[in-house]
């Protein structure tokens, strides 16, 4: 099964579970979790079921396209269900079967892994799912986001697309994976991998990046003051990515590092609070929608 078919399969599976199929969010981010579709929407009482592919940038993992396992940018398939359904493990395992992974022929385990992202004031409990010893999915029940208690609890599934594909396609080098018939990951991503690595580690203009960080931070603040949650959050994501670029280049000293992280954290926290307030002010539109939908069904 090529990557494209995998994605289609997962989309179909989760769509059948009433997940909204979203598209990748258009601001750089380090993980699917940071998309506002996860981070903000997991907060508050409104139900939220969503699935999407998220290209995730990790500048420090850039290897000029030379490492068989590490990428500047990889893909995650992200599922959020709030409140977490009682049969979520079964739903997940069914998705593996649909990807051609027969549990009777493999060893699938749920190994404790608690997830914490202090930058986002977020924490969750759950597992990494092992397939014959390989971690293929992060399975997390959110307990806290942006410093706020997550209630009801959203469950997050993050499939590592390339990891899973390397197993399904039995390839050792990520660049040899088939994306779609006749096209490999290498065909599509080798050049950007090389160029982003070169940019990140050698060619980026440090002064410009530092300046951009300040500009994005200012813009995030002033937008937040006007109560505009989503634009403010976009700028927080930009701060975070800019920080990652600087950090990967190794130009941020220890003392500065802590400072930058806490800047991003504080912004994210305030935005989380603001989001919750705004949703309340709007009368939790998704909550109503579901109520009427259920009503008409019955």
């Amino acid at each position: 099964m090529n990557i494209q078919e995998m994605i289609l399969t997962l989309q179909k599976h989760w769509s059948d579970q009433n997940c909204i199929l979203m598209q990748a969010y258009d601001v750089e981010k380090g993980a699917g979790t940071m998309s506002p579709m996860t981070l903000l929407r997991s907060l508050g009482p409104e139900p939220w079921n969503v699935a999407y592919v998220e290209p995730s940038r990790r500048p420090a993992d850039g290897r000029y396209g030379q490492n068989p396992n590490r990428l500047y940018q990889h893909h995650q398939f992200q599922v959020i269900m709030k409140p977490s359904p009682d049969n979520i493990q079964e739903l997940y395992l069914e998705s593996l079967v649909k990807l051609g992974i027969d549990p009777l022929k493999h060893d699938i385990r749920f190994v404790e892994d608690n997830w914490e992202n202090p930058t986002l004031g977020a924490a969750g409990l759950g597992w990494e799912v092992w397939l014959d010893g390989m971690e293929i999915t992060q399975f997390t029940y959110f307990q806290q986001i942006g410093g706020l208690e997550a209630k009801p609890v959203a469950v997050e599934l993050t499939y590592g697309i390339e990891r899973l594909a390397s197993y399904i396609q039995d390839k050792e080098n990520v660049f040899d994976l088939e994306w779609t018939k006749g096209v490999t990951v290498g065909d599509i991503f080798y050049q950007p991998e090389y160029e982003h690595s070169k940019y990140t580690f050698e060619e980026s203009n440090t002064d410009v990046l530092f300046e951009l960080f300040s500009i994005y931070e200012e813009e995030a603040k002033q937008t937040m003051e006007k109560g505009l949650v989503f634009p403010a959050y976009d700028y927080v994501l930009k701060c975070s990515h800019t920080f990652n670029l600087l950090d990967a280049k190794g130009v941020i000293s220890v003392t500065e590092r802590t400072g930058y992280i806490s800047k991003v954290r504080n912004l994210a926290r305030e935005i989380a609070k603001l989001y919750v307030e705004e949703r309340e002010r709007l009368g939790y539109p998704l909550l109503k929608e579901e109520a009427t939908e259920n009503g008409s069904n019955k």
């Binding site: 068989p68 009777l104 022929k105 493999h106 060893d107 385990r109 014959d132 010893g133 390989m134 050792e172």
Partner: peptide, 28 residues
């Protein structure tokens, strides 16, 4: 030597999968 959560059917597949993971780890 490892322990599978299951019986010995297809244990070869499981062993090969684990070998592959270990290989990636050791390459690192």
């Amino acid at each position: 030597v490892a322990v599978r959560n299951g019986d010995d059917n297809f244990i070869e597949t499981v062993a090969r999968g684990n070998e592959k993971v270990l290989k990636a780890r050791l390459s690192d």
